[in-house]
Simulated scan of single mutants.
Amino acid sequence: MDLTQTKKLAEIEAITRSVGWGAANILRSYYRGEVNQGNLAINEDKKDGPVTAADIAANHYILTKLQAVFDTDTFGYLSEETHQGTDPIAKDWVWIIDPLDGTRDFIDKTGEYALHIALAYQGRPVVAVVAIPEAEKLYFASKGHGTFVETPDGTVNQISVSDRNQVENLCLVVSRTHRDDRFQALIEALPLKDRLYMGSVGGKIATILEKTSDVYISLSGKSAAKDWDFAAPELILTEAGGKFTHFNGDPLTYNRGDVRQWGGLLASNGHCHELLCQQSLDILAKIDGKASK
């Protein structure tokens, strides 16, 4: 079968939405204490952050549902909770999954957690779902067909980014913490109007879709965000009219073996994207120049 056909992508998208809602319901049941101990970290020492019973349960549900339809002979699976090794998955079609984006926010009860499911073809996302369980919203997109938001009653509406097109009028969405001095200096130097605080990456990109923010930046330090942090959020943003690139303008590529996305990346409503990327590069050059003296 030709998976690039519009009809086939629409079928995959519909299945992914259903799986996304099921996983979102699992996360909410843990978050609200309907499942015993669901709000507690069961592995605080995990290298990339804590893992909860909710992460494991949602991951198991997503993999079970998807693998029942999308066989492992054709499709690869790259999930935060099961990823091992440093080699790319030897498949053209790879599911990239974060069953609980923002685990710390989940534990701390901010409500600002999400789940991501994306299907990539040769390293680029073509179907994506980002669910925000506590907002009871699920954002979905397929390549070339726009981004939509769905609520539990089945209402679906197309969604797009803001039309704000002056840097001084744009709002930056950032985490409350997780910023080293270099990143802090960068965002303080950018001439943006406002700052909005949000936990998960999926939640941050959702604020750009909802027009409450316009810009998100990721800058690696001792560590870096991973493929599963960005694959689904990227597609729902770009299909809604936004842009998501490295500072130098290069597109993100997934399933390269090293799942870490090093360097600086910028997501935006698209209107000042190239200018903000260049400003970020110029600011970092000054910061790094001072640090080297």
Rank of each mutant, 00 (worst) to 15 (best):
L3E: 09
Q5T: 14
K8M: 13
L9Y: 05
R17A: 03
S18P: 07
V19K: 01
V19T: 03
G22A: 05
A24F: 00
L27P: 00
Y31T: 02
G33T: 03
V35P: 02
G38K: 01
G38C: 04
G38D: 01
N39G: 15
L40M: 12
A41V: 05
D45F: 12
P50Q: 08
T52Q: 02
T52V: 10
T52A: 05
D55P: 07
I56C: 08
H60M: 12
T64P: 06
A68C: 12
V69N: 13
G76F: 07
Y77Q: 09
E80L: 01
T86G: 12
A90L: 10
W93D: 04
P99Q: 04
L100A: 04
L100I: 07
D101M: 05
G102N: 02
T103H: 08
D108W: 11
L115I: 02
L115V: 00
I117Q: 02
L119R: 02
A120H: 03
Y121R: 11
Q122S: 11
R124L: 11
P125E: 01
V126A: 03
V127M: 07
V127A: 07
V129D: 03
V129E: 04
V130W: 01
A131F: 01
E136R: 13
L138M: 09
Y139F: 15
F140K: 03
F140D: 06
A141C: 09
S142C: 11
H145S: 14
T147E: 06
T147F: 02
T151C: 11
D153W: 08
D153Q: 13
V156G: 06
N157Y: 06
N157T: 11
I159A: 05
V161C: 10
S162E: 08
R164A: 09
N165K: 15
L172Y: 00
R176W: 11
T177Q: 14
H178L: 15
D180T: 04
Q184N: 14
I187D: 05
E188Y: 11
A189Y: 09
L192Q: 03
L196R: 07
M198F: 10
G199Y: 01
S200F: 10
V201E: 00
V201S: 02
A206E: 10
T207L: 08
K211C: 12
T212E: 12
T212Q: 12
V215Q: 09
Y216G: 05
I217M: 09
G221M: 05
G221Y: 05
S223R: 13
S223E: 15
A225L: 15
K226H: 11
K226D: 11
K226M: 12
W228F: 10
A231H: 00
A232I: 01
E234Q: 15
E234R: 13
I236Q: 03
L237I: 05
T238Q: 03
G242H: 04
T245V: 09
H246Y: 15
D250I: 00
L252G: 04
T253F: 14
N255P: 06
G257A: 09
D258H: 06
R260P: 05
W262L: 04
W262Y: 11
G264R: 03
G264Q: 06
A267L: 08
H273V: 02
Q278H: 14
I287T: 07
I287C: 10
D288R: 06
D288F: 04
G289Y: 04
K290C: 10
K290A: 14
S292W: 08
S292K: 14
K293S: 13
K293T: 12
